[in-house]
């Protein structure tokens, strides 16, 4: 066999429907494996959860990160090549709009995959939590020149107190010196020149002061966080913010999500044991197991997801091309 005909043979195989079908099937099977095993856990997790040997096998076969494993990426790359070569072969034989639509549709899959690769390699994501009234410089997080200030955060409720919308009012200083004032809501991210900021989470911060071994320690902590008082004994002060304290009920119970009767519950723990517990109203000071604690106020923090993903534009272009291909393929008049 001469080198040339060999090459042709390989190209025929690469562009063949047989390979295409095999790849569709294998990609489906591989993708399903990733949905059955928890992804992206540390190796120890699998050994504890599935047993020593199965755990090792899972990690060895990359089933702990299927979608980034070499064999999955290789299959996807082969699939792209298969689609490309097959479409190129068909480009020459397109007598009517329908068959052209079909080729466009297939080429759009390559554009979409290109978008996915660019997303995978170049996207930058960070999650930040910012208290209301606070600012954060985003330079260190990979968004040089940007800084973000949260002016206000609020939750809107339906009548039955189910949340309706989470809203952060922010002011964004951009790298080119602009200042943008915007409301960020769920499903309505802030967008500026490829930078996007999403409403992702929220919570309460309790503000106050504890006196630990004669030292005044001011704090501003998310509900549930702790201050170390005596590391040798594993002794900590934990703070829980209760927006609508129920005088009759369980100490940690909130009657509603609204701050109608705000209290700080301060708990002194040694290991897992509760040594002392006090409920403080705003402005109050009480000793908690010998540590004086003052509750001076509370505020919301907002959790924002910040990202830049140059792949999205290419992806969306791929979607538009795909739609165009679909319309041509299915709606163009048939030629007999």
């Amino acid at each position: 066999m001469s080198g040339n005909s060999r090459k042709r043979l390989d190209l025929n195989l690469l562009s063949s429907m047989k390979l295409g079908l095999l790849l569709l099937l294998l990609l489906g099977i591989m993708a399903s494996l990733g949905s059955f095993f928890p992804q992206g856990q540390p190796p120890g997790f699998y050994r504890v959860y599935y047993g020593e040997l199965p755990g090792r096998l899972i990690v060895f076969l990359s089933l702990d990160h299927v979608y980034r494993s070499w064999w999955f990426l290789t299959l996807a790359a082969l699939f792209a090549l298969n689609t490309l070569t097959c479409s190129l072969k068909r480009i020459k034989k397109t007598p009517d709009l329908r068959s052209r639509g079909s080729v466009i549709l297939h080429l759009s899959i390559l554009v979409i995959l290109a978008g996915a690769v660019i997303s995978g390699v170049m996207a930058r994501h960070t999650y930040v939590e910012i208290g209301t009234g606070k600012s954060l410089d985003l330079t260190a997080m990979g968004f040089p020149g940007y800084s973000l200030r949260v002016k206000e955060f609020k939750v809107e409720y339906y009548e039955n107190l189910q949340p309706k919308q989470y809203i952060s009012s922010v002011s964004l200083k951009t790298a080119d010196g602009q200042e943008i004032e915007r409301e960020i809501q769920v499903n309505r991210p802030l967008k500026y020149k490829g930078l996007k900021i999403y409403q992702a989470s929220y919570g309460w911060l309790a503000r106050g002061e504890a006196v630990i071994n004669g030292k005044e320690v001011p704090f501003e902590l998310a509900s549930g966080r702790e201050l170390d008082t005596d590391p040798d004994k594993n002794e900590r002060l934990a703070f829980f913010f209760i927006p609508d304290f129920d005088e009759q009920g369980d100490t940690l119970h909130s009657r509603s999500p609204l701050p109608n009767n705000p209290r700080l519950v301060a708990v002194l723990f040694q290991d897992k044991q509760v040594m002392a517990r006090e409920v403080l109203a705003e402005g109050e000071t009480r000793g908690v197991g010998g540590y004086p604690v003052t509750f001076s106020g509370y505020l919301y923090y907002t959790g924002l997801e910040i990202k830049k993903d140059p792949g999205v534009g290419i992806l969306y272009a791929g979607f538009v091309i795909l739609l165009l291909g679909l319309v041509m393929r299915y709606l163009a008049p048939e030629k007999h």
Partner: peptide, 23 residues
């Protein structure tokens, strides 16, 4: 992409929708 800030995340529901499509 609009609600979570990621257009694909290999969430089981997304993954199985893709598998259906492949079949």
């Amino acid at each position: 992409e609009e609600v979570w800030g990621r257009w694909w995340g290999w969430d089981p529901k997304e993954t199985w929708a893709l598998i259906t499509w492949l079949i």
